[in-house]
Design a binder for these strands. Sequence first.
DNA 1: AGCGACCCTGTACTTCAGTACAGTAGTAGG
DNA 2: CCTACTACTGTACTGAAGTACAGGGTCGCT
Lengths: 205, 205
Amino acid sequence: MTDVVHIFVSHHGDLLPRWQAAFPDASGVLSSYEKTLSATHLWLRLRAEQEVPPQVNNAHRLGPDSAVLVLSDAPNDDEGLSAFAEGARAYCNTHSNPEMLKQVADVVAQGGLWIGESLMQRLLTTTSKMARAANAPRQDWAAVLTPRELEVARAVANGSSNKEIARELDITERTVKAHVGAILEKLQVRDRLQISLKINGLSRS
Amino acid sequence: MTDVVHIFVSHHGDLLPRWQAAFPDASGVLSSYEKTLSATHLWLRLRAEQEVPPQVNNAHRLGPDSAVLVLSDAPNDDEGLSAFAEGARAYCNTHSNPEMLKQVADVVAQGGLWIGESLMQRLLTTTSKMARAANAPRQDWAAVLTPRELEVARAVANGSSNKEIARELDITERTVKAHVGAILEKLQVRDRLQISLKINGLSRS
DNA sequence: AGCGACCCTGTACTTCAGTACAGTAGTAGG
DNA sequence: CCTACTACTGTACTGAAGTACAGGGTCGCT
């Protein structure tokens, strides 16, 4: 815990009082390259009038080996998502209290990510929804299809024509039709489009 | 930080040495209801041979007001997802070192969630993918299609045949074909299946 | 050896999707 | 009034999808 260096990157290069309270040794910068190289924790205060990705990328450039922690004056889920998509390690409110900031820094130091509760909830619900829709029924049809049929089914679901699938699998179009026929029967559907809906978890059954 | 009570729920009701190291005051239980009520942190060591949801739910029953922290001998993303879906506040390795466990406990005490890096990465990628697929292109095709074409497009995407759509909209099959043709041209695709993929946000463009 | 899967292929047919060409009609706007 | 867009319909054709019928071969199990 001794070799931790906090550097805050903000519009004016100054430190908010609560940042100072959380990390007495921290320094603030505007964009001076040399000073930021030594940072372990590079805090970036987002500027609302600019896009998020370039700001985060710039922070990565300032400290290639630093963990980038993003501070937002008005946090929202989409902004947070953008930040994490660009490799940020934390996303929290600019005006969080010192205890919170210290907590965040510790989590990041341990290799973790800090995400707000709201965004977290969204991540969990959407992903678990996807997992539910993608896991439970998957074994349903995956079980009845042979390996080869599975390949064909996936290609069909992806929008490929019989001819394309034939080329891809290096077999005759006739054979593809045979496989498709078997799939249609096993999955109890009439169309290749219905196959697509079933494979992609969009059918109402 | 004074009124923190750690209780470990495991198969044998005993404490691993590293748990003890992390929280000297912690106690371990098998399933005695009275003792668990006082817990703020209820650690649950998963049993591999059982399903995850009932185990987590049982932990909630043991301590309705406790935060449930899940420990897994062999963590993986799907298991973690199940745990969080059931309301767990943390998911980490059973054999994490004491520092890690303390860290996890602190995060949870602050109202946060602890999620492994791998699972986190998966959450972020899938969600940002969904956000991308759900926001940007949606207005794309909706804008170029006329109201009637939209109806037809949705029906097509749903797997209806031309004849069915004709019946549903009370028009001729010929007219449906005209609409479908217009949709194909405007959306720059060749198939009704591609229409389905595009409407359902599954195309790679 | 026989049986049942899975994978592969051929010919021939029906049905559906999609396109070309052509036309009627209502409605909004310059 | 004329133009443009939308909705609708017809005949006729091409091509893809799907089905029927019929076979070839391999592999594992009884």
